[in-house]
Every structure is written in C-alpha cells, then in structure tokens.
Amino acid sequence: MKYLTLAATTLFATQAWADTPELVVYTYDSFVAEWGPGPVIEAAFEAECACDLKFVGMGDGAALLARLKLEGARSDADLVLGLDTSLIAAAKETGLFAAATVDADYDLPVTWEDDSFAPYDWGYFAFVHNADLTPPANFRALADSDLKIVIQDPRSSTPGLGLLMWVKEAYGDEAPAIWEGLADNVVTVTKGWSEAYGLFLEGEADMVLSYTTSPAYHLIAEEDATKAAAAFDEGHYMQIEVVGKLAGTDQPGLADQFMQFMVSDAAQSVLPTTNWMYPAVTPQGGLPEGFEQLIEPDKALLIPNGDVPALREEALAEWLSALSQ
C-alpha cells in the first residue's frame, strides 16, 4: 500500500512537471559535467524561461552527430549544442536541422554566416609545451627539430581532424611533404584528446596537440605557469563550436530563446573558465584574468564548412600514407 501511495505521488508529481515545457539539448559529455558549463547555464536559463532545460551528454561532437543520425526525425532532442565547424556540413546533409536566426555581434576572427547554426565559443588549435622549451616557429621548423610530439588520430578524434585541416589549409599540395617530415617527430597517435594530453603530462612527449587556451586552465585553475602554447607563423586553425535547432522540435519558440541565450552575457561569461574556450561574444566584464597571457595567432585559418568533407578524404589519405611508412 505504501508503495502504491509512493507511485501515485510520483505520478502526480510528474504530471505537475509536465505543465512546465521541457527543452532537451543534446551535447557532448564534458559540457554537462558538474565542473563544466552545463549546470550554471541550466540554472541561468531556467530562471528566465519558465521551462525545464535538460542537457543530455553523450561522448564528443562526432558521437553526437552519429547519435542524431541513428535517431533520425524521431529524436527527443530540441537542440544540439557542441557540433563544430568540421562537422557542420555533415550535420546539414542530414536535413534534421531547422533554419534559425540569432542576433549577435560576434567577436570571431572570421565573419560568421550560417542560416542554421550559431557559434557559442571557439578556440585555436596549438601545440602545448612546457614553458622552459623554446618552441619551433612553424611546422617546417618542427619537422626539422628532434622534438617529440603526440597527436590524436583524425579517424577517432576532433582535434586530430583539426590538425589534418590545419596542415592542409596552411600548405595545400605540400601537406604530404610536411607530414613526411613530421613522421619522425610523432611519438604516437592516440584515440582522443584526453589520452594525448595525459601522455604529454607524463613526459612522453615535448609537445601535444591541444588549444591555445589550454595554458589558461593550468594558470587559472591550478596557478601553474609552466605550460605554454607555441605560436606558429603560418597561422592557427580554428575550431568554432555551434548550437543548432532541430526541425522536429516541439518547442520551436523556446529553442530560439535558448540559442539567443547562448550568446548572451549570462552564458558567454561562464564559458571561458568552464569550457576553456574563447567566448563567441566577449562579455561586458571582458575575458577572465589570465587569458591576456595567452598567445594570439597573427592569422586565423579555417576551411569553409562545405569544403571540409571532400578535403578530409584527401588529407586523411595523405596522412595515412605519410605516417604508415
């Protein structure tokens, strides 16, 4: 009898909840972690939307897209947050995303034009090293050096794919030669970012592929100034993370409101020290202390979203043949 009462109470409670609209956002795993941006953004948005915002975390950006394709139009999700510039073309091809307009004055190194996706943060890929090392000034110098690097596999990881695009965009047809030069510098290739960064911290390599903002974490969260990012003179490849609305959403109004919220001060001021990326719109208070010490690349590189899939095939084949010898 007790259980029946409990069950009935739970049922009524659920129904009471049902009066509040629920907004489901699929995102990558680290976004929803208790130390990630998820919890803060959820509380801030719920304070103004009279809705229940639910983040559902799953793997990384690539896993997110695979999941959406599996679910198709039946997905419970209203929005997807966490795809990046290398995945946008593939995401659009699914036809699952709706057009959306977000009004924002972006502080991105490139002009943003897209009818479905709105950027919320971004970063530059860079090789991170210990501050006492004098880093090479570009890929050629790195290839000529004895420095050991650890990188991520472009077949399983987004930063790995970013590096592939970086070399391709900077060197074009010379990319295979650059990779052949780098082959003896590469200690190993890992499945994902965590493994590579872990190996670097263990001293297995002199440099690791990560972001220009990585030293900010050590500086701000750990008060450790021993990590730095190497500035390359051919420019740095960018990663822009975006949020998009699904065509099948049952809360189109709320979804638009959320997209707009993601570029507002309330969300943007949280991102730098929780997601460790640059905010898409610089918040009024400016960037957190410590970010001013980060390197600022002279040139931002980015391959247009639509060209990524074809270039990826080509670059991947070049990468495989250069590193398999």
């Binding site: 896993a63 077949r155 399983s156 590469v186 190993t188 290739v189 990468w319 590193l323």
Partner: peptide, 23 residues
C-alpha cells in the same frame, strides 16, 4: 594498439569500426 603502436600502422579492426560508426 593505437596508443602504443606509435601511429596509423597500428590500426586494428576495432578502430576501423569506430571510425566507420562515428565519422
């Protein structure tokens, strides 16, 4: 295999499956 294999030479079937699913 991937981490200690030192590069894409050390590709296993499982990695190929992973790639096929995800990317």
């Amino acid at each position: 295999a991937l981490t200690l294999g030192g590069g894409p030479r050390a590709t296993t079937i499982e990695l190929a499956i992973y790639q096929a699913f995800r990317f």
